[in-house]
């Protein structure tokens, strides 16, 4: 099968959906000639023109309000917020408007929009450009939260997000845009709420998403050499979450390690632990372990930055503690 960069898979999803549906358009900062901060949209301005690739001033509230208003009136916008850190400038539009409009208007209105953004550490860009804020959105009823790790998943899930009738927060990771992965030529979509077992195993389940998936796979490789068989579970979408698949995996392995790059306090990992405790405690043979980021701002210095986020070694250590 051919291989595509993660960012080219994003572009291909946009092209296919824009060709399929004239209501789909892109809006965001520096997405015109510049092609987006991570160049996922390079060439799209030429292909679709400024009416469908709308390059905006630095106005996060107006970008997302613009997407919401267009969604309310028949369009399907894909709004890009350059860094997830900048979503903080427009939380009213995300939390009080996009997430609530359908519910509070008694289904009179709905908001079919995608908020595309990216987060995560690893580029030495410090505290305001490296956060993992997915838990903020996960917490809000009315938002779907998608965090694909591979080229295959990012393409299939972005197409589904664009077709979804509700607001979707689509979070990429800045360290994986140039990762290559197999993407079929023929069209496909991936439904929300369907996890993917990225590696089958029998001794322990490792729950990991976005860039942490790759750390978990590396850990599983090393542990296999020591005779420990890890099942690497990628939820792909955090809302909706494929709880049944997770519990099935736990039933098989009876052990769970949850990995998340975000600061541990109030994290997705904490909630996954609670869910599995509630629903599958009897299948566990030991405590669930969390491997998370430190409760710290992300530092600039590379040594300090790397110390803030989980690595292969920290995952291996956690697995060994419960094996």
């Amino acid at each position: 099968m051919r291989e595509l960069d993660y960012r080219d898979a994003i572009k291909e999803a946009c092209i296919e959906e824009m060709d399929r549906d004239p209501r789909v358009f892109l809006i965001g900062e520096d997405i015109g000639v510049y092609g987006g901060a991570f160049r996922a949209y390079s060439g799209l301005l030429d292909k679709y023109g400024p009416e469908r690739v709308i390059n905006t001033p630095i106005s996060e509230q107006a970008i997302l309000g613009g997407a919401i208003g267009a969604a309310l009136t028949g369009y399907r916008p894909v709004a890009e917020i350059m860094f997830i850190d900048f979503c903080t400038l427009a939380m009213d539009q995300i939390v009080n408007q996009a997430a609530k409009i359908k519910y509070m208007t008694g289904d009179a209105l709905n908001v079919p929009m995608v908020l595309r953004t990216q987060g995560g550490a690893g580029r030495g860009i410090a505290a305001q450009h490296s956060q993992s804020l997915e838990a903020w959105f996960y917490h809000i009823p009315g938002l779907k939260v998608v965090m694909p790790a591979t080229s295959y998943d990012v393409k299939g899930l972005l197409k589904t997000a664009i077709r979804d009738n509700d607001p979707v927060v689509f979070i990429e990771h800045k360290m994986i845009y140039l990762n290559k992965g197999p993407v079929p030529e023929e069209e496909y979509t991936i439904p929300f709420g369907v996890a993917d077992i990225k590696r089958e195993g029998k001794d322990v389940t490792i729950f990991a998403y976005s860039n942490m998936l790759f750390k978990a796979l590396e850990a599983a490789d090393d542990l296999a050499k020591e005779g420990i068989s890890c099942e690497v579970f990628d939820p792909r979408t955090l809302v909706p979450l494929d709880i049944d698949a997770l519990i099935n995996s736990v039933k098989k392995t009876n052990k769970l390690v949850v990995v998340s790059e975000a600061a541990e306090r109030g994290s997705i990992a904490s909630d996954i632990m609670a869910i599995v405790n509630d629903k599958a405690f009897d299948y566990l043979d030991g405590p669930i372990k969390r491997v998370c980021g430190l409760n710290s701002a992300i530092p600039y210095n590379s040594k300090l930055e790397q110390a803030c986020i989980p690595h292969k070694e920290s995952i291996i250590k956690a697995v060994k503690e419960i094996i």
Binding site: L64, G66, G69, A70, T73, Y75
Partner: peptide, 17 residues
């Protein structure tokens, strides 16, 4: 002020259609 940016989006769709 919550509705003000949403009017931008409705304006965009009015212009596009």
């Amino acid at each position: 002020g919550g509705g003000i940016p949403i009017s931008v989006g409705a304006g965009l769709s009015c212009k596009m259609e």
